[in-house]
Each structure stands twice: as structure tokens, then as C-alpha cells.
Simulated scan of single mutants.
Amino acid sequence: MTTPGETVETPPRPRRNASRAAVFGLIIAGASLLLFGTSWWTLVAAGNDWPTPVFVTLTVLWVLWMVGFPLLMMRGHGGAHRDGAAVAGDTSLGVVWVLFTWSVLSLLLRAALAVAGVADPVRSRVVTVVVALIALVLLLWGYAEAMRVSRVRRVDVVLPRLGPGLDGLRVVLLTDTHYGPIDRARWSRGVIDVVNTLDADVLAHTGDIADGDVSQRLAQAAPLADARASLARVYVTGNHEYFSGALPWVEHMESLGWETLHNRHIVVERGGDRLVVAGVDDRTAAGSGLPGHQADHAAALAGADPSLPILLLAHQPQMIGGAVEHGVDLQISGHTHGGQIWPFHYLVRTDQPSLQGLTRHGERTQLYTSRGTGFWGPPFRVFAPSEITVLTLHTAP
């Protein structure tokens, strides 16, 4: 409580925000130096003994690339949201990540050649050629994998509490479509054409629909209106909705005929047996500033018959703790992209309990993590193919 005449000092927010921005800037600068510097050392310096004009030209190009990269990312994914800059920045990220990875691994080849008596500059030039060729092959293959219509992945899941009338229920899972700066309207149509051959009973989308607002991605999202399911089409928000305008995307999905499970549930029935289909907001929702948006398992299951099996949509596998606590039988998630570009897989596993596939948590709860239907950012998928998932639910034998 204050008395008349007193003043209350508030923390100097702008200074704190400036400090955070400075720290973030230093992190980006350090990461850029590591990624670009390592690949430059391997391909340009490191004993290659290129002619001076070649060395200088390559070095200047590398520096321009390194300096331009964060500028492209900020312009592409910041407030301006310029699709051309986003494509250039995202592609640069994928290329430099692959070059960095194989530059690090090339130290083994460099050591082997040294033991074999191969001296510089031949040794370094052999390493350069090998790294460049591997990167080129992986990037071309990874681009083809990213842009193709996702393969269908079929998984059988036994749920002991599932009633016999629901045995064989098909849950088709889409996630992380990430409609973005590369126009993939034809790809989106191809995905829905595949979905409509799968005889889905429940069709689920577990978030990260798009990067960009609704008006920018209308054409890419339009085929979702034609997706078919006999019992329900349901959707929950992912973290990227909270970058791109969660409320407009929720409203747009509902206009396309999808039910948004905003911390709530529905009940589907077949053959006299019922299944609770629930959904929770993404775990980042609480920090979005949107009133009522947060991951709330209790609200999602409020009023549900506790004797019924529960299928939960939650964008991130990391949310499995709440599912276990509330007795969920199966949680379906995305978010990880299966790592998308190896070896990013190992970094993803430091934050998420599952990278992909079916895992068990606690006595009752199972988790299925999809590798994602689309891709985020770099238009490459390396050792992490995309998927449209058919989960066939079975009663206990």
C-alpha cells in the first residue's frame, strides 16, 4: 500500500529489454561465427593453399554470407515478414548446418590422411572435395524429401480400456504443416488427397499450421476444408500459432470445418463404445498474452467420464507429464520434426522426451510423436522423412 505523496519506482524495463536483446545478439553472433567459421576453415583455409585471389574471393563471400544471414532471418521472420528474405535465410541456415556438420566430421578423414602420410595441400583439398560433395548430395536429397508429399506411416496402438466397438478406429494425424514462405499449395492439396484415401474416423492436426498470418497462407491452408473423417476433425494450437496470430488461425480452422480443442474435449462413439478426444493449448501459450490460453489438462478433461479411454492432442511431446497425471491413454504430438536435419536430432532430444514413434510413459499412457507432415525453415529433410500417420487403435487381445 502507498500513502499520498509516495511514489513507486518501477523497474527500468527498456534497459532490461535492451540487455536481453544484447545477450540474444551475442548468442546469434557466436553461433554464426561457429557455423560459418568452421565451414570456412575447412573449405577455404586449413592448408588448402589456394591461390591468393581464390582465397580472398572465397573469404569475402563467406563473410558477406555470414553477415547477411542474420539480417535475412530478421527481415524474413521478424515484424516485416518478407517471404523472399525468409526463403534465403532459411536456405542459408540449412546449407551452413550441413557444411558445419560434415566439416566437423571431416576431422576424422583429415587425421586418417595424415596417418597415411598425405601432406598438405593435397590432404586439405581432398577433405574439401569430400565435404563439398557430401553436402551437395545431402542437400539435394534433403530438398526432394522436404518438398515431396509425405509418406503414409501406419502404426497399431493397443489401448486396454478401448471398447470393442472402437476396435480398429483409425486416427489420421497431420502436424507441423508449416505453410510458409515457399508456396506449397499443390503440396497441401496432395497431402489432403492422400488423407482422403485413408478412411479416417478421427482426423487430427496437432498444430504449427503455418508460419505467417491467415491472409498470407490462405491458398496453402484451403485444402484442409476438403479433408474427410467419419467422426471428427480436430485441431490444437502449436507454438508457431502464437508467432503468427493464434486467434485468427483458430477461427480460420473452425471456418474450414475443424473443431478446435482449446482446453476442451469431445466424445466420439462407434459400435456402442465411446472415446474422449481432448486437446490442450501448446505449452508456450501461457506466455503469449492471450487471455485463457495455456495448457490446461484439467479444463480439457472437465466433465469427462473417467471410465472412458482418452485420446489427447498436445503439440509437444514434452507435455506428456500432464497426460500421465490425468490418466490419458494416448497422447499424439508433433513439434520435433524427427530432428529434420541430422544431427539436429540430438539437440531436440535434450528438450523432448521423444523424437519420433510410439513410447510408453507411466502405467497407462502412451505417446505417439510424429516426425511432422511439412517442414520448418530450411527446405531440407535429412534422415528425418515427413509423414502422414495412420494410428489404428485396438482393444487388448
Rank of each mutant, 00 (worst) to 15 (best):
G338N: 09
G79Y: 01
I332A: 02
T177P: 03
V195R: 07
V23P: 07
R270A: 04
Y346I: 15
R364G: 04
S307G: 13
P223D: 09
I310M: 10
T395R: 15
W40Y: 07
P397L: 11
T3Y: 01
T392C: 11
I134E: 06
H293K: 11
V98S: 14
L33M: 13
A204Q: 10
P121K: 09
G357E: 05
G303W: 12
I192W: 09
T365E: 03
S150Y: 01
T395I: 00
L113E: 06
P343E: 02
P181R: 14
F55C: 06
L133C: 11
R283L: 10
V60K: 13
P385Y: 00
W342M: 06
H205A: 09
V280Q: 06
G245Q: 08
Y242S: 11
L136S: 11
W50C: 10
W258I: 11
A219K: 06
A278H: 10
R75C: 11
V44M: 05
P70F: 07
Q216N: 02
I27H: 07
W97D: 02
L308G: 01
S124P: 03
L198V: 04
R184L: 14
L301M: 08
H252E: 14
D120Y: 13
L391Q: 12
L275Q: 06
Y242M: 14
A88D: 03
A144G: 15
P306W: 11
P4S: 01
V382D: 06
P12Q: 12
N196F: 08
R170T: 05
P223W: 04
V122L: 15
T389I: 08
V267E: 12
G245F: 07
P11G: 14
L162P: 06
E241S: 03
E251Y: 01
V44E: 08
G25A: 12
T373K: 06
G377L: 03
V348E: 05
D199K: 14
D176P: 09
T197C: 14
G303Q: 07
R154I: 14
A46Q: 07
V194I: 05
R381E: 07
L312T: 09
V236K: 09
R217S: 13
T59K: 04
R189D: 04
S244H: 05
A229C: 05
E6P: 00
R82T: 07
G279D: 13
E145K: 02
T128V: 00
G168S: 08
I209L: 14
G94Q: 06
Q352E: 15
R148V: 04
A299E: 10
M319R: 04
F375L: 12
A31K: 10
Y346E: 14
A111M: 10
L34I: 01
E325Q: 11
A302I: 09
V44Q: 07
P51N: 01
P70M: 06
L247G: 00
D211I: 15
A278F: 13
G374N: 09
A45P: 00
L393G: 08
A111S: 06
H252I: 15
L140S: 12
G78H: 03
L99G: 08
P309N: 12
A298E: 10
V324H: 08
R153T: 15
S333H: 08
D201Y: 02
V44W: 04
L162C: 05
A299Q: 11
V115N: 00
